[in-house]
Design a protein around this nucleic acid. Structure first.
Lengths: 194, 194
DNA sequence: ACTTGCATGTAAGTCGTTACATGATTGT
DNA sequence: ACAATCATGTAACGACTTACATGCAAGT
């Protein structure tokens, strides 16, 4: 037994448990679910999900059932009672404040080593990338809202609600980034011209 | 030779090289420098800097000199020409867009599993943490501005400038977080009371 | 005398990635 | 027949973290 280990991020485990609360899933389903739900802020590879599931089965938070489906063997994972208890307990623990561990900030920090004209190029390209993700998120958000407008039951479903809240955050976050780097580029231009 | 490896984050290596461009440093100095400069968005442990330096020496980006200082042996690291070339080349490469890989979003995503009153508690605590960091950053920013006000030469130093820009980003980022989670809490309260 | 800071390092573990490997089923 | 998607898995590596270990030097 290790006396060490403090548990730092472990976003993956919690996301797996949380998604399994929606219903049983194969590793493949899990990957797909992650892509379309937490995907914009967290998405792990299949090669990462596989050992994570193995560990969760080992520690009893997840149960594995092998089923035959369409003449094929399939491994279906479900959350156990202990897993649910663990998850629920985590969910109401304090929210840890994280650093904005963004590689873009490292570049900005050392931006004095880049020519001004090149700086502007880089920021413009970066802004385009931000806009792409931003508009995709907004579209996704809009789609969800339209679907919900037709279905009052869904709109009052707390599960759907909190998931939309993260989408709202993402959308606002990219708005913030766009505005910030837009202003930043403007500042550089002003300093450049006499 | 591995045909794999794509290089993803490697913030650490770039920060080490960039800080060594300011002047030679020991591993200890490096750690201190990181804490007080990139610390608010990136800070690595000494146990991580050590092997990173070893690797950088091995691949010729950094040079190690053992000096005697005050009757004690000291290992001083300096950036080599190749290291500088590598760094400068990286600095003008495109800025990669990153995901907001924030554990707080995972919690928000599954917030339907938390009671409303507890939610508000958690957000309040979170907001307090945000405010602590925010005010520390603002203070730091103010201090820097004051120092610069007295010294025109420094204010026109591009190195100082870009470092202040990241501070500005951090400050604005925490403003954004504070505003966002403030509104979020408000929304929850409104939905709660009929 | 003692604490704090300077200074360097390793061992073990965590969390994740990319690339590779394999194969069955479904739709065109 | 062939491509796409469903499905599961491993090997090697990467980028860290915490905890432990050690010891000297400077200031109080």
């Amino acid at each position: 037994m290790s006396t060490r280990s403090k548990r730092r991020s472990i976003m993956q485990d919690k996301i797996i448990l949380g998604l399994l609360l929606d219903g049983d899933k194969s590793s493949y389903d899990l990957k797909k679910s992650m892509e379309t739900s937490t995907g914009f802020f967290y998405n792990s590879s299949q090669g990462s999900i596989q050992p994570a599931l193995k560990k969760l089965v080992q520690n009893g938070h997840v149960h594995l059932t092998e089923v035959r489906q369409g003449g094929r063997n399939k491994k279906v994972y479900s959350i156990t009672e202990e897993g649910e208890k663990e998850f629920l307990s985590w969910a109401s623990e304090p929210i840890a404040l994280d650093k904005p561990r963004d590689p873009a900030l490292v570049k900005m920090f050392f931006f004095n080593y880049v020519e001004d004209s090149r700086k502007l190029e880089l920021i413009e390209t970066y802004l385009n990338e931000i806009e792409t993700v931003r508009s995709t998120l907004k579209m996704f958000q809009q789609m969800n809202r339209e679907q919900l407008g037709k279905n009052q039951e869904l709109l009052n479903n707390p599960r759907v609600r909190s998931r939309l809240d993260t989408l709202d955050f993402g959308s606002d976050y990219y708005d913030f980034l766009k505005a910030w780097y837009g202003k930043y580029a403007q500042k550089i231009i002003e300093e450049l011209g006499p």
